[in-house]
Design a protein around this nucleic acid. Structure first.
Lengths: 161, 161
DNA sequence: TGCAAATAGTAGGAAGTCCGACTATCTTAT
DNA sequence: ATAAGATAGTCGGACTTCCTACTATTTGCA
C-alpha cells in the first residue's frame, strides 16, 4: 500500500483521462476543500482547551477589536461571511458561556448588539496564544507562500481585478 | 458603506497591529476557509437539480472510475479523506436514493462494498456536465492559477517536499 | 494454537452550516 | 401619510462533519 499516495492527484488523473479541460478546476477546488478540513481541525484542536471553536473564536476576536467591544449581529455576519442563522447560533453559545452578552441597540430596535465580557476578553487573549502556537495549522508555510496563497484566493473570491 | 470592503483584509490589518509575525498565517488560513464555503456552495447549487451534494457526488464519481464500480467503504473514506462515520452517512443516502448498493465482500466479512447502480452511473454523468458548466465555482481562474493553487495547497497539506 | 491488537463498519450525539419562513422595525417613494 | 420594500434577528428543519463508543472480524506474534 502506498503510504504517501495522494487522493487528489489520483482524482486529477481520472479527470485528465476523460475531461482534461476541467481537470485543474476539479483539482484546485478539491484541494481547497481538503485544506480547509485540515486547517479547521488544527485550529479547533488548539482552541479546545478553552472551550472554543474556530467559528466562535473568530467572532470573539472581532468583538475584541472594536472600541466598545460590541457589534450588531448583522455586521458580525458580514465580517465573518456567514449566514444570519449561524450568527445567532454562535452568539447563543458564547452568551451561555458568559463570554458575550446581548444588548439592545440604542436607536434601532431591530438590531441586537453582541458585547464581549471581561471573561470573553481574557479567554480571547489566551486562545490567541494557543492558536498562534500552531499558526492556524499552517506554521510550516513560508511567509511568501502565505502571501501567494492569499493572492490566489482573492482571485477565487473574485477580488482579483 | 464600502461595498467591496474585504473582511479578510480588515482582519489582517487588525492582526498586523498586534501580532505582525502571525498575520499572514491568519489571513491565509481564513482565506482558505472562506474560499471553501464559496466553492462548496457553487458546487452544491449546480448539483441540486440532481438531488446530489458535493460530498455524495465525489463518492459516486470515485465508484464510477473503478473497473467493477465498487469499492470498500474504508477505501472510499481514505480517498475522500473523510471520517468513517461520514462514509456511512453518505452511502446511506446514496443507497436510499438507489444510486449505490451495499454488497458484502467475498472474502473479508468485516468489509462492505459500495457498488454504483445503473441509475447512479447515469446520474453521475449528468451531474458531471452540470458541475463542469460552472467549473466547480472557479471558472474565472486561469489554468496557471489553478496549478499554482494546487501546488501551494500541496504545501499546506504537507506534500511539498 | 490462541490471545492481543488492528481493522471495518455503525449507532448515538454534538457542532456547524445553510435554507425557508416568520415577526418586528425602519426606510422610502408616492 | 402610508403602503411597499428592505433590514434584523430567530425558529425549525435538513445536512454534513466529527468524536466516542461498540461489535464483528481478521491478523499477527509469541
Amino acid at each position: 500500500m502506498d503510504d504517501d499516495f495522494d487522493p487528489i492527484a489520483e482524482a486529477k488523473a481520472n479527470w485528465d483521462k476523460r475531461w482534461p479541460e476541467h481537470s485543474t478546476y476539479m483539482a484546485a477546488a478539491t484541494s481547497i476543500m481538503r485544506a480547509q478540513q485540515l486547517i479547521l481541525k488544527a485550529a479547533d484542536d488548539s482552541l479546545k482547551p478553552y472551550g472554543l471553536t474556530f467559528a466562535r473564536y473568530e467572532a470573539l476576536m472581532l468583538l475584541s477589536f472594536t472600541k466598545k467591544g460590541e457589534l450588531p449581529l448583522s455586521k458580525l455576519g458580514q465580517r465573518l461571511m456567514i449566514h444570519p442563522t449561524s450568527v445567532t447560533n454562535i452568539i447563543d453559545k458564547l452568551t451561555s458561556d458568559g463570554l458575550v452578552e446581548r444588548i439592545s441597540h440604542p436607536t434601532d430596535r431591530r438590531t441586537t448588539l453582541a458585547r464581549i465580557t471581561d471573561l470573553g476578553t481574557k479567554l480571547a487573549q489566551e486562545a490567541t496564544k494557543a492558536i498562534h502556537d500552531v499558526d492556524f495549522g499552517i506554521g510550516h508555510l513560508k511567509e511568501n507562500q502565505n502571501l501567494e496563497l492569499i493572492k490566489l484566493i482573492n482571485a477565487v473570491r473574485g477580488l482579483s481585478k
